[in-house]
């Protein structure tokens, strides 16, 4: 139980960094709060100061530039991400992930940046960010830097931010031509649920749309961190974009996965689902790479 924290809502990044630095290990950034407030209540995390980032204009901005890609403020709610026309057009896997976190009310508060910083193995926004090649922009006492999202999480609930550092934005490169992405997760219920296993896939096809030029696969809830299925993705390069290739990629992803069994899923179930969800996410990515829609 943690009841005794303070609250500040700065309106600049510099002020937020200062508060976080001064607050030391007890200071925590607050974005949507949908994970953090519950964790504080149950004593899963501790804090003596929450620094609310939602009043900093840059952190609530979405900017898409056809030359430069997407800059997504760390405090943009998932609903705004999932509804954004440019994101819908160019980064469908992120729409899949951001559009399925919690329910409609949660998505109005929860942020993609917060989902990343919560660093849950089952975070639905993280595998999409990874396969879309996202970078995290970090501000801190020593200025700012960028790191790939694929290396952001270092353990369950743990990330690489140092004291006084905060996530400012996510940068996603412009999508390459003939590419498509998809995130699918398995849950018992239709919504308001948490991934038993999730898989994000990104594919780039050759000009004939028959062969895979490049591929990325990332998985949720099958390892202590969101997992890049490197072997499976690399194997796909140069292969025909068909169900046989995808099935083999699913098998290779199963070899990479290191799931546990818990109340949300048994170990054999998770291992099995890695194959199924990887294959299905690849199918979805393929259809989108070909310009088909798979929504609804």
């Amino acid at each position: 139980m943690n009841f005794s924290y303070g609250y500040r809502a700065p309106d600049t990044i510099a002020e937020a960094v200062r508060l976080l630095q001064e607050g030391g290990s007890g200071a925590r950034p607050l974005a949507g709060g949908t994970d953090l407030l519950v964790q504080l209540r149950h004593g899963i995390r501790q804090a003596d100061l929450l620094v609310d980032l939602k009043r900093i204009p840059e952190l609530s901005a979405v900017r898409y530039d056809p030359a430069d890609g997407l800059t997504l403020g760390a405090a943009v709610p998932c609903a705004d991400v999932a509804d954004h026309p440019d994101i819908r057009a160019h980064y469908p896997a992120l729409v899949d992930g951001a559009g399925i976190i919690g329910g409609s009310a949660i998505r109005q508060r929860a942020t993609v940046g917060g989902n990343l910083c919560n660093a849950s193995p089952s975070g639905d926004a993280i595998p999409p960010l990874i396969v879309l090649g996202a970078e995290a922009e970090i501000a801190g006492p020593n200025g700012s830097c960028r790191v790939p999202v694929s290396s952001f999480c270092v353990g369950p609930g743990l990330h690489l931010l140092d004291q006084g550092e905060m996530l400012v934005a996510l940068h996603l490169p412009i999508p390459s031509p003939r590419s498509g992405s998809c995130y699918l997760r398995f849950t018992p219920r239709g919504e308001m649920d948490i991934a038993v296993v999730g898989a994000a896939a990104w594919l780039q096809l050759d000009e004939s749309l028959s062969y895979i030029e490049d591929a990325r696969i990332a998985l949720s809830a099958v390892a202590p961190v969101p997992l890049v299925a490197e072997t499976a993705a690399t194997w796909l390069i140069g292969r025909p974009a068909d169900s046989e290739s995808f099935a083999q990629a699913g098998r290779l992803a199963q070899e990479t996965a290191r799931p546990i069994g818990d109340v949300r899923g048994t170990l054999p179930q998770r291992l099995h689902l890695v194959g199924v969800m990887t294959r299905r996410a690849l199918q979805g990515a393929l259809r989108r790479a070909k310009g088909e829609t798979i929504d609804g």
């Binding site: 239709g190 919504e191 308001m192 948490i194 109340v263 949300r264």
Partner: peptide, 16 residues
């Protein structure tokens, strides 16, 4: 008890 909450003790939603 491992699921003493409405996330892991799953009541059907309107979608289910």
């Amino acid at each position: 008890m491992l699921n003493a909450n409405f996330l892991d003790y799953k009541l059907p939603t309107a979608l289910d």
